[in-house]
Design a protein around this nucleic acid. Structure first.
Lengths: 109, 109
DNA sequence: TTCATACTTAAGCATGTGCTTAAGTATTAG
DNA sequence: CTAATACTTAAGCACATGCTTAAGTATGAA
């Protein structure tokens, strides 16, 4: 797991427009136009967001004829979830150790 | 769960310096100097990163005397994990539905 | 061949981010 | 009181981000 991959993945998820695109794409594939239509911005702007998502690895796309179809690639979604989940667990374990230490100190006093 | 909270949380996690700070803080609280010392940058720069983490809600701090102690607040960590995990699940369910649909189509042919 | 569709690229601009050094404030040790 | 410590704020600069409009390319329909 390369660190700069997480940079791009979290950065991609930091934008509400891009989270909306992910939200749409987890339901199934969609074309660029379909994805851009509901967004309150120009088509080129929407495509920049899609490019960020593709560069992050969250989304893949392929062009057939003149239509580009986008879909979720779950790998980076899993990696991001994993990174955050692991840190939350580490935090919990530190708390547990602190609790055990305090219990022990109390027992000795 | 307000959306702009996720904006700030994911943006905070998108930077390797800030992830390193989180990595340190999940082991337990630390002062500003302790956190800044290993970083390859000036103290003011490190403090800007800490400010981003605090504004995102990932970290809290309190000053006693002239020393500010920082610690993880796990709430936003959980929320970020939850958002990503839920979307990954939604994607899996879409795949399942597609599989079921294809099985059914095949059975009818 | 002509036209509409579906993207794609380019240019430009406003704002935000990440860092620097320098100077300042507040607290505590001597 | 004096000085060191631990942060804090300010000013400034380079570069990235998020958008715009305009123009361009490639494909498919008529």
């Amino acid at each position: 797991m390369l660190k700069y991959e997480l940079d791009r993945t979290f950065a991609a998820l930091a934008d509400p427009t891009r989270r909306a695109l992910v939200e749409r794409l987890v339901q199934g594939p969609a074309t660029v136009s379909e994805l851009a239509r509901p967004l309150p911005m120009s088509l080129p702007a929407a495509m920049l967001h899609l490019k960020v998502l593709e560069d992050s690895g969250l989304v893949t796309s392929q062009k057939v004829g003149r239509v580009r179809t986008c879909r979720i690639d779950p790998k980076m979604l899993s990696q991001a979830e994993h990174w955050v989940g692991e840190r939350r667990q580490m935090w919990e374990r530190s708390l547990d150790r602190l609790g055990a230490f305090l219990d022990q100190s109390e027992a000795q006093s």
